[in-house]
Amino acid sequence: MVNGIGAVSCYQLESTVRRSFIESRELVELARELTELDGLTGLNNRRTYDIYIDRIWRQSRREQAVLTIMFVDIDHFKAYNDRYGHQSGDDTLKAVADVIAAHAKRPLDFVARYGGEEFVLALYGSPADPNLYPENEAARMHAETLREGIAALQIPHDDSTTGEYLTVSIGVAVILPGARRSLAGAVQMADEALYQAKEEGRNRVVVIQTGDSKFRTGRFRARKPSAA
């Protein structure tokens, strides 16, 4: 009888330990999600992006691999929120995020919500066969496919001056990291390409690469205030 009671007690103790272990793992996973992921879209958040982009930049420099950075911004999103409400705005952010995430398929590709209605996509190496397409053309093709994929959602936007449906502008920087190039400069290139896409009328892709003479990092955006 004593042995039977002991066996039951051991079973109960083991069950309690297992349950506590599972709950602890769930709490750890929840904590990870809260610190690494954006609560609305489920994409990586800005904090995770900052950590990742620094690591992938250093790896690109070591391996002399091309790095493509894309900033994706929803056109006239404030007007969309004002007309359709914040719940519709949240639903739209999630729908757009899903399309962007589908364009980060390779192991080292990375997508994050950068802030508000802006997203960032980092592609390690050329997104297409470099024997068939130059890096800048491959990046443009990838970005155009992404832009068209979001347009294909056909989300009505009656207050947009760009079209009847929701659109995005995409700024792309194609960089071969080197000892004299900085990550901050590379990110600024993508940011300036996005600004140029907006200046040219939105709903378009602008690609720049290292050595492009019409962009001077850190000076282009300063000439004019950015429109919302």
Rank of each mutant, 00 (worst) to 15 (best):
V99A: 04
A228M: 10
V96L: 06
L194G: 01
A186N: 02
H157F: 11
S160K: 11
N3V: 14
Q209P: 11
S88W: 01
Q209F: 04
T92E: 02
N131I: 06
G171F: 11
Y114K: 03
S160A: 05
T68D: 01
P177C: 03
R140A: 13
R46W: 03
Q209H: 14
T92M: 09
Q154G: 02
D212Y: 03
V120L: 07
S126T: 04
Y124T: 03
L27P: 03
E36M: 07
E192M: 14
A97K: 12
A173E: 09
V17A: 00
I74R: 05
A184E: 15
Y114Q: 01
D91S: 09
D98T: 14
Y133K: 07
Q154D: 06
M189P: 12
I100F: 10
A197L: 14
N44W: 04
T92V: 11
H157T: 08
R140L: 11
H103K: 10
P127Y: 13
F21D: 15
S226F: 14
R32E: 06
L123H: 09
R181Y: 12
R216T: 00
T161M: 13
M70A: 06
P225E: 08
G89H: 12
Y133T: 10
D73L: 07
G171P: 09
T16I: 07
G163W: 11
G185Y: 04
V174Y: 07
A138Q: 10
N203I: 09
A138L: 03
T210C: 01
I208G: 08
E144I: 00
S126V: 00
E137A: 06
F71K: 06
T162P: 01
A95E: 14
S126G: 04
D50L: 13
R47S: 10
V2W: 14
N136L: 07
S24E: 15
T68F: 05
V172E: 05
V207D: 01
A179Q: 15
V187R: 14
K105F: 01
T217D: 08
V168P: 15
V174D: 05
R223I: 08
A151M: 13
A79G: 10
T41V: 10
Y49S: 02
V8R: 15
A101Y: 03
V168D: 13
G218A: 03
L13N: 15
S88F: 06
F21Y: 14
P107I: 01
E144S: 10
E135K: 12
A104M: 00
N45H: 01
Y49A: 02
H76S: 05
E118Q: 14
P107W: 00
I74Y: 04
L183K: 14
N136P: 05
E164W: 13
A31H: 12
E23V: 08
Q188H: 08
C10E: 15
G4P: 12
G115F: 14
G85T: 09
L30T: 10
A179F: 09
